[in-house]
């Protein structure tokens, strides 16, 4: 019990950019187990908040299929869009209208949110481990994963159920997580400031590029469909 309360005490420290929190995390006897537990708890909480937010958003906005119908008719009448070449507009059209007509059901977020968080953490951890090792780091994969799990805690500020999809406003949370990951890699690998910065940035860029490529592939398949 005291172990869990000690783990929970690291959360506000990590939120407030206290770099010592990651050294304490690394020094815990079962650091990877504790990190995974923390991440799963965070994922479940975010899933619940996301599901509640989706239910509220569904009540506030017109139905998705109605929105899609009006948008389809309205966009077809926009002269500026008619002049664009067909391929980007068709893809965007299909992606937007498909998403509006069939949004992710609120309850599905209970499962998809923790899963997405865990996959993102694992993918980032593996990339960051490689980048940090290339830059002279000496931490193990377990230490990297434990510390980067703690670096996900800034997402707790998303535990507000009424929040609608944030879009660009999520940039603040992502920047917060990235800064926390920088501190996590510094502690896990004993890197100096600039090496930890480049390791954190390189892993984030690689993961971002891979996510963009996946999104483009999905868009392309919808456009073809």
């Amino acid at each position: 019990m005291s172990s869990i309360s000690a783990l929970l005490r690291l959360v506000p420290q990590a939120l407030l950019f206290d770099g010592d929190a990651y050294y304490r995390m690394k020094a815990r006897p079962r650091a990877l187990y504790d990190g995974t537990l923390l991440l799963l708890a965070l994922g479940v909480g975010l899933g619940l908040a996301g599901a509640a937010g989706a239910v509220v958003a569904a009540g506030a906005a017109p139905r998705g299929d109605e929105l899609a119908r009006v948008l389809r008719a309205g966009l077809a009448r926009l002269p500026a869009l008619q002049r664009l070449s067909p391929w980007p507009t068709t893809w965007l059209h299909c992606a937007l209208l498909g998403w509006l007509a069939a949004p992710q059901p609120g309850l599905a977020r209970l499962l998809t949110t923790p899963l997405a968080l865990a996959l993102n953490w694992l993918a980032y951890g593996l990339l960051a481990q490689r980048a940090a090792r290339l830059l002279g780091g000496c931490g193990s994969l377990a230490e990297t994963l434990a510390c980067t799990a703690l670096a996900e805690v800034p997402r707790v500020v998303l535990l507000m159920p009424l929040v609608s999809p944030l879009g660009l406003a999520a940039a603040g949370i992502e920047a917060w997580v990235l800064a926390a990951r920088f501190q996590a890699l510094r502690a896990a690998h004993g890197l100096d400031g600039w090496r930890a910065f480049w390791a954190a940035a390189a892993a984030a860029l690689l993961l971002g590029a891979a996510s963009l490529a996946l999104a483009a592939l999905q868009l392309a398949s919808r456009g073809v469909g």
Binding site: S164, L166, A169, W176
Partner: peptide, 16 residues
Amino acid sequence: QLATTAPYRRLALWLP
């Protein structure tokens, strides 16, 4: 919803 997303919008400018 607009009101509750206001802190996130401010954070998105200031923090990064």
